[in-house]
């Protein structure tokens, strides 16, 4: 498995506060990877480190085989759609495409123009006059037409309404299929990621809680409901992710590779959102942490 991003003991401190500490992570190439976690988990910091906007305080990070933003060639390998999708308000859409064309050696002008056309945007329009959804689409166009090996998107849909959100992700998926680019996409909204990701990284308190193929994650995680019982009494090979109890009943989320044979459990499957929530809750049981936002 070739890794498109590799972090080792990665940490970033702002003055006294660690926004990300001791993060070790490997993201495989050729996937759409969702980076999910509560607000303040360090997602933006991690992504900023990956594109070289930030320099690490501790540890190392390697993206597409090089130090982020080390030189122009490295910068060309990584596309970035920043949070809130910044654009130059005084520049038109055509100006932005020109900016991309003039600053990126692998710029694909045909892709950029056809995408703007398909979106129904007027190239002469100033970026400052665009709606949030249109601006996000413009930023995505810039990122895609750069033809990077890895496209990183930081909460690209956070400020969009549900319709614009769906459109954005659809366009992203089409483009990914067309250009064979690896994508790393952060969100605190699992339902967004569910639609597009085939790989998932759950980041809580700057630690990677779980990471893997979405399909195999869904297969290996089960919800067990049954008479009240201590999680410690489960057979080896069943790792408790989260547990909740009422007076008579226990509900556990476990990770296991083998089928659950105990007849006292009612076994159910989890959706991706429940799975992610289970990991957050599991953390919360240890120490109260930030709450996962659930949006649909």
């Amino acid at each position: 498995m070739t890794a498109v991003l590799r972090a080792e003991g990665l940490g970033k401190r702002y003055r006294r506060r660690w926004a990300l500490s001791d993060c070790t992570l490997k993201i495989p190439a050729g996937h759409v990877t969702g980076l999910v976690g509560p607000n303040g988990a360090g997602k933006t910091t991690l992504l900023s480190l990956a594109v070289g906007l930030l320099a690490p305080t501790a540890g190392t990070i390697e993206v597409c085989g090089g130090r982020p933003a080390a030189d122009a060639a490295q910068l060309a390998k990584v596309g970035f759609v920043a949070q809130d999708t910044p654009t130059y308000p005084g520049l038109s859409i055509a100006d932005h495409l020109r900016l991309g064309a003039r600053t990126n050696p692998r710029w694909d002008d045909a892709v950029a123009r056809s995408r703007v056309e398909r979106l129904g945007l007027d190239p002469a329009q100033k970026a400052g006059r665009l709606s949030g959804g249109q601006r996000a689409q413009l930023a995505l166009t810039l990122g895609l037409a750069k033809r990077p090996e890895l496209l990183i998107l930081d909460e690209p849909v956070a400020s969009l309404d549900p319709l614009a959100r769906r459109e954005f992700l659809q366009v992203l998926m089409e483009a990914v299929a067309e250009h064979e680019v690896s994508v790393l996409l952060s969100s605190h909204v699992v339902s967004d990621l569910e639609r597009v990701c085939d790989h998932l990284v759950v980041l809580v308190d700057s630690q990677v809680r779980v990471e893997g193929d979405v399909e195999s994650l869904l297969e290996s995680h089960l919800r067990l409901t049954g008479p009240r019982r201590e999680p410690a009494t489960l057979p080896a090979g069943q790792h408790v992710v989260s547990a909740s109890h009422t007076d008579r009943q226990s509900t556990l989320v476990v990770r296991t590779d083998a089928p659950v044979l105990d007849p006292s459990w009612t076994v159910g499957r989890l959706g991706l959102e429940d799975l992610v929530l289970a990991y957050m809750e599991g953390t919360r049981a240890v120490a109260p942490g930030p709450v996962m936002e659930v949006l649909r």
């Binding site: 906007l53 933003a69 970035f80 130059y88 900016l99």
Partner: peptide, 17 residues
């Protein structure tokens, strides 16, 4: 202030240039 440095610095041009 506008955050556009995040756009400018992630094109294939180094910050120094």
């Amino acid at each position: 202030e506008a955050g556009t440095h995040r756009l400018a610095w992630t094109q294939s041009v180094t910050r120094t240039r």
